[in-house]
Design a binder for these strands. Sequence first.
DNA 1: TATGAATGAGGATTCATTCAT
DNA 2: AATGAATGAATCCTCATTCAT
Lengths: 203, 203, 203, 203
Amino acid sequence: MTPKPDSSRRGDLAQTLLDAAIDVFAERTYEGTQMPAVAQRAQVGVGTIYRYFPSKEALGNAAFQYAKGGLLAEYRAAVAEGGPTTSTREEFSRLWRGFARYTAAHHNAFVFLEHQQHDTFLAPESQALAAELDAFAADFILSGQLSGEIRDGDPKLLISMALGAFAGLLKHVGPGGLATLTPDQLAQAEQAVWALLHREASA
Amino acid sequence: MTPKPDSSRRGDLAQTLLDAAIDVFAERTYEGTQMPAVAQRAQVGVGTIYRYFPSKEALGNAAFQYAKGGLLAEYRAAVAEGGPTTSTREEFSRLWRGFARYTAAHHNAFVFLEHQQHDTFLAPESQALAAELDAFAADFILSGQLSGEIRDGDPKLLISMALGAFAGLLKHVGPGGLATLTPDQLAQAEQAVWALLHREASA
Amino acid sequence: MTPKPDSSRRGDLAQTLLDAAIDVFAERTYEGTQMPAVAQRAQVGVGTIYRYFPSKEALGNAAFQYAKGGLLAEYRAAVAEGGPTTSTREEFSRLWRGFARYTAAHHNAFVFLEHQQHDTFLAPESQALAAELDAFAADFILSGQLSGEIRDGDPKLLISMALGAFAGLLKHVGPGGLATLTPDQLAQAEQAVWALLHREASA
Amino acid sequence: MTPKPDSSRRGDLAQTLLDAAIDVFAERTYEGTQMPAVAQRAQVGVGTIYRYFPSKEALGNAAFQYAKGGLLAEYRAAVAEGGPTTSTREEFSRLWRGFARYTAAHHNAFVFLEHQQHDTFLAPESQALAAELDAFAADFILSGQLSGEIRDGDPKLLISMALGAFAGLLKHVGPGGLATLTPDQLAQAEQAVWALLHREASA
DNA sequence: TATGAATGAGGATTCATTCAT
DNA sequence: AATGAATGAATCCTCATTCAT
């Protein structure tokens, strides 16, 4: 009833916990993170975490799914907004903005997701979500190849490389996120990744 | 008691241990790996590891330095071989072959190195080695920019993106390594990464 | 906020709590029982228990004393009722009925009491009450031995065995209590325990 | 090769652990016992327990099965020894001696077994073993009833009562075991339990 | 007055490291 | 020199207890 004197927490402790977990996992790795560290980041007692997630593994998977799901949503929103796309380059631009927007708000989430490849703790559900995102991205590549705007090759390979380049960009800017770049630098980076995908004139 | 039937080992058990450690660290993360797992991979008893490395942390650092150092050496060898370079594109090609050769022999080493960014266990020495490699790479970019062949922008940013793209490529091919690609596919991938770096005609 | 729909409770919530505690302790052991389990059985919130008992230990002792006290009271009532006893056999019969009546109403209480022997949580007060009951029982044996109706031997030993046999009977019938036996079966059981105590003709 | 300087442990740490667990469980209940207490009793580090038993629950079940199995074995040995039995009374005597012998060596094991009735941790395997022992005992009663030497009634009920009486006897003598009784007292106790079972002349 | 979400001390379990063989 | 059983500090997780509502 009265606004909490201590903090903005409340109502969605689960959400707070997820955010805290993603932050700490991104910084120290899932396996390298101890539950008390998550609790501390969330300003909560350790026991509290267990009221919302039955185990560290469950927390890890929930965090993964939340992050991956958020990225997928942002992705879709970015593509949808602004009506039908006229060119693959334009669509790429929208995706780029989607990424940029997502990582602006969730820098650590993206870093956390990048970690997970050799994962020991991801449940089938989590992996299914990852696959969904991959499929979405592969579709984009494929239609770009059909229209002749994207270079030949296995769509998944191209996606993997483009995503890797984007991840490299984020790794470079560090925790500050893309905001540390000038609009000009950002445009250059976008152009560079597009060049990676773009079918070249001759050879 | 009886001499090991599978000889081959001997003298450089340390090397065997390093290789085993890199493999397992790459698969399961440094923090997610238990010493017995390393011992098992190396086909030795746990105790034996401690005759060569004083601690898990020491083993981790030795593995890191071995991997990073090997990459740097391969890098330098690739650039040196075949006499003076005529163009940045040609030098890039040599670097690419160096990378390809290195990852062919040490796929897991590269994966392991990619993990380490938020590292908790890396000693200053290890970090210095990493910086050396970065500097080497930045030099390449810089001279390419001076000759007008590489696009403008912070060299470190470009390196980070190119390296990310290469990492994405490796992630895509998986444990089989680059050998799973046809020469043609490999050439395409090389060309794509070059496009990321290459200064474009107009803009 | 709204008055409890299931009234009945009220005033002696403490009593409800005691009953719930005894039930759950009997089923799962004192140490094996969590406070929320007691609360749930009593249909109250956990916090409520603490308004009536300062701690789990206090609750355990209160439950113990309530159970032991109730048994002792039933015991005494059974002996008193029906005027002066004519024979030890007759007195035994009254005690048996006392037991039977008590366990009919408080099956779990008896089971709970049987558990407590190696107790870590029993306060001196609780132990004193237990001793009082033992003394009462020993008196019965002793006077029976004096009148020649009960076999020789340490009264406490005989009590312990007779009580053990009764406990075995209850364990056999399970949670349904003695009500699951026919009157005939019950009489037989009584006779068997009496035989355990009864001094035999020759030897 | 050289006899251990420190203790007689070795070769069967698992056995030592089982004995220690039974002791402590008997004194403090399974749920009331902490792993360090078991470790201390066994003169071992906590971690060592987990090299032999995967969890506290597994240890509890192993202890239960070891105790119950030992009792069953002693039971069978006692019946077999001395050739065919001539009377139920004689067979009872052998069983009694079996019990006495078992509890002499394993007083705590018997106490521990007596605890387990409302068990939360017993695996189906453990319960099966318990049932086997019950069946064995019921057989004895049944054949005694057929020969007219044992009183009528549900064999399981009678067993339960006799066993309860025996348990009461042990509870009375305490940790010292039956050795604290004179042969005469022991004979009296045996006779008392027999009286519980024995079919009486008239009524 | 009753509640149950939040807490952190305490208990179960793991794992880097030692050391007797 | 190599080993792996033993160890206990560090981790995950539970649960008695508190306290804001």
